[in-house]
C-alpha cells in the first residue's frame, strides 16, 4: 500500500516535471551557458567561451545601467500610484450600495486586455497631432508633449497605471470583503471616525494582502515591454529604454545573445534580491 501510494504521487506530477524540465529548466541552464559565450546570431558557427566577460561588458555598459535605472524608476512610481489609487478605489467601491457588481466589472476591465493594444490606444490618444487629449488640452492653452524626452517615461507609467490599477483594486476588494466585521463595529461603538478606523483597523488587517499585491505587481512591472515597443521604442534618446527592451535589443536587434543572456541573469538576480528584501520588510515585527 505504501509503495503504491508513493507511486501515484510521483505518477501524478510526472507529466508536469517532464514538460517543465524541457521548456524551463533546460532553457535556464542553456541561458546560463549562453551568458558565458560570445554567441552572436550573425556568427552562429563561431561561438567562443569567454567566461564572465559578458557580465563585465554589461555591468559597465551605460545603456544597461540606464535601462536598469529607467526600469527601477518605472516600477517604483507605477506600483506606488497603483497602490494608492487601487486602495482608494477599493474603499469607495466597497461602500457602494447599488451597481457595485457592474461598476467593479467595468473598473477591472483594463487588466484583462493585451498590453500592446493598451499601448497603441494611448499612443493614439496622446499623439500630439492626432490625439484627442492633446487636442482638447490645447484648447485650454495647455501644451504637453506626452512622448517628449521629459515626459515619455512618466507617460509610460500612466499607461501602466491605467492598465494595472484594476489588479490592485481586485486584490483589495477581495481583501476588504474577507475582513471580519466585528472590529469595525467595535470601532464605531468606540466612536472612532472614518480616518482613524482606516489607519488603525483597516490598514493593519489588510497588510498581508497589500504585501502580496505589491510583490506580484512589482515583479510584473519589471517585465514592462509592450508599451515601450508600441510607443517609444526606447526613445527619445534612450529615456524609456527598460531592461526587457534592452535585452530584446541586444539579443534580437544587435544579435549579441551572450550579452543578452548575461543581462537577463543579472535581472533575475536583482529580482530575487528584491523579493527577499520585500518579504523580509513585510514580516510583522515581533515586539518583545
Amino acid at each position: 500500500m505504501n509503495a503504491a501510494k508513493m507511486h501515484i504521487k510521483y505518477k501524478l506530477i510526472l507529466p508536469l516535471v517532464f514538460l517543465l524540465s524541457g521548456i524551463m529548466l533546460y532553457p535556464l541552464i542553456f541561458s546560463a551557458w549562453l551568458s558565458l559565450q560570445d554567441y552572436r546570431l550573425t556568427r552562429i558557427n563561431d561561438v567562443q567561451f569567454v567566461g564572465f566577460e559578458n557580465f563585465g561588458l554589461i555591468a559597465t555598459d551605460s545603456s544597461f545601467l540606464n535601462a536598469m535605472g529607467n526600469t527601477i524608476i518605472f516600477v517604483l512610481s507605477a506600483v506606488t500610484f497603483e497602490l494608492v489609487l487601487g486602495l482608494s478605489l477599493a474603499l469607495l467601491v466597497q461602500k457602494l450600495v447599488i451597481f457595485r457588481g457592474a461598476i467593479r466589472s467595468i473598473l477591472l476591465a483594463p487588466m484583462f486586455i493585451t498590453p500592446i493594444a493598451v499601448g497603441l490606444m494611448f499612443r493614439f490618444l496622446l499623439n500630439s497631432e492626432i490625439g484627442i487629449i492633446p487636442f482638447y488640452l490645447l484648447k485650454f492653452g495647455v501644451s504637453i508633449d506626452w512622448f517628449g524626452p521629459e515626459l515619455a517615461l512618466f507617460s509610460i507609467v500612466l499607461i501602466d497605471v491605467w492598465q494595472w490599477t484594476p489588479f490592485m483594486l481586485l486584490m483589495f476588494l477581495a481583501g476588504l470583503e474577507a475582513l471580519p466585521k466585528t472590529p469595525f463595529e467595535a470601532a464605531r461603538v468606540d466612536g472612532a471616525g472614518p480616518w482613524l478606523t482606516f489607519i488603525s483597523i483597516t490598514l493593519p488587517m489588510l497588510r498581508p494582502v497589500i504585501v502580496v499585491a505589491i510583490i506580484i505587481r512589482a515583479l510584473d512591472a519589471f517585465k514592462v515591454f509592450e508599451y515601450v515597443f508600441a510607443i517609444t521604442r526606447g526613445g527619445p534618446g534612450n529615456s524609456t529604454e527598460t531592461i526587457m527592451y534592452y535585452i530584446y535589443q541586444t539579443g534580437f536587434r544587435f544579435f549579441r545573445m551572450g550579452e543578452a543572456a548575461a543581462a537577463s541573469i543579472l535581472l533575475i538576480i536583482f529580482i530575487l534580491l528584491l523579493v527577499i528584501l520585500l518579504v523580509n520588510l513585510s514580516r510583522p515585527k515581533v515586539t518583545k
Partner: peptide, 17 residues
C-alpha cells in the same frame, strides 16, 4: 517562482532551441 520568471531569460534559449 516559475510563474514569476521574466520572459527575458527564457526567450534567448527558447529562440535558439
Amino acid at each position: 517562482a516559475a510563474e514569476m520568471m521574466p520572459p527575458a531569460i527564457l526567450i534567448l534559449p527558447l529562440f535558439l532551441i
